[in-house]
Design a protein around this nucleic acid. Structure first.
Lengths: 191, 191
DNA sequence: TATGTTTGCCAACGGCTGTTGACATCGACG
DNA sequence: CGTCGATGTCAACAGCCGTTGGCAAACATA
């Protein structure tokens, strides 16, 4: 019994090594400063292999920074705990994964990465949040406020690495941010 | 009556033109993608003039992105309004000034800009905040939480330009964020 | 064994970058 | 006038970048 489709190629190990090195470099240095040559050196292969397997630097980044929030279904959680659920979910998703840092470092200067960021946080998040917001028409800007708080956390903790923010335990972080998110989602606002 | 010191040089106009062009380019493109040649072209002078007047690209950026938060003295405002005061101050300071975007776009990839950001938000802010926090020892991490929220706003509004966040009026933004900052500064926290 | 494909390395290309030094021009001053 | 410093232009350097095409070795298939 032989495989009819090449489900496993001999080069899969190389592809994986490139991807791993690319994630580290993009996360640490951002898109522009992470060079194909450096990534190839980390993966111990020739730069031309990167081109063969991923087409271009943009293609490599797209593969390395692919990122789905995998947002939970908020309709399934008690409405007074949606804030806590969301904060905990983001932290679970980000801790120990370098892709968020890579995406954030790149999105500040690379237009296509910024677009991806916008579609993730303005569209995906707004759609998820719409189920739990008092008025569905308010979903966009409520999601925007949530994105501001959560991306600010990601920025200070994973990218800028402000010492006091890095040192706070995840559980404590949830305790402080959850009420904020809860209010942005459900609060009646100023006035 | 002649000036003994050259208080006004004939090249001041050029220096100013370079600085203005540099601020725009750095804010729009970030440090790496903003080239000296492009800045010089905007300022309608030769790239070598940039080197003569600012020494290097790093020196130019240091001059163009110099930024002081000019934080208010929080001890002088009613303690129940420190959050609102702080949020309003940040917005006043950032709206219509491109330096924050330039600094933010650069700090994500340039180590020295990241250092500047850290010193501004971890040190300056923590020092200001210490006057108003329940326990001075808590100033660092409380300032960290505040930095997270405020930098997240700057990121989504001035850098990523998430449409819903851009469209919110400053006054309304103050209304939503002030309670958050107030709690990060004065709240008793989770538990 | 012979043949075709996959995997990898090597050398090079064209382009853009920050930076430098030589040279022209202008204004002020003796 | 002549001198000198300030201001500005021009051309070039050396280095790094993404990307390309050719060629060798390993492998699969017959």
């Amino acid at each position: 019994m032989t495989d009819t489709a090449p489900t496993v190629r001999r080069s899969d190990a190389t592809r994986a090594a490139i991807l791993r090195a690319a994630r580290e470099r993009f996360a640490a240095d951002g898109y522009d400063r992470a060079t194909i040559r450096a990534i190839a050196a980390d993966a111990r292969i020739d730069p031309s292999m990167v081109m063969r397997y991923y087409g271009s630097k943009e293609g490599l980044f797209a593969a390395a920074a692919e990122f789905d929030l995998r947002l939970p279904d908020l309709a399934a959680v008690p409405v007074e705990r949606v804030g806590e659920t969301l904060v905990r979910h983001f932290l679970d998703r980000w801790e120990g994964d370098e892709r968020m840092a890579a995406l954030l470092r790149t999105a500040t200067t690379n237009p296509s990465a910024a677009d991806r960021m916008r579609s993730i946080f303005a569209d995906q998040l707004a759609a998820t949040v719409a189920d739990v917001v008092p008025d569905r028409a308010e979903a966009p800007w409520r999601a925007g406020l949530v994105a501001g708080q959560m991306l600010g956390l990601a920025l200070t903790r994973y990218v800028l690495r402000l010492a006091p923010v890095v040192e706070i335990e995840p559980a404590e972080l949830v305790g402080w941010l959850a009420p904020t998110i809860q209010r942005y989602l459900r609060g009646t606002g100023p006035g």
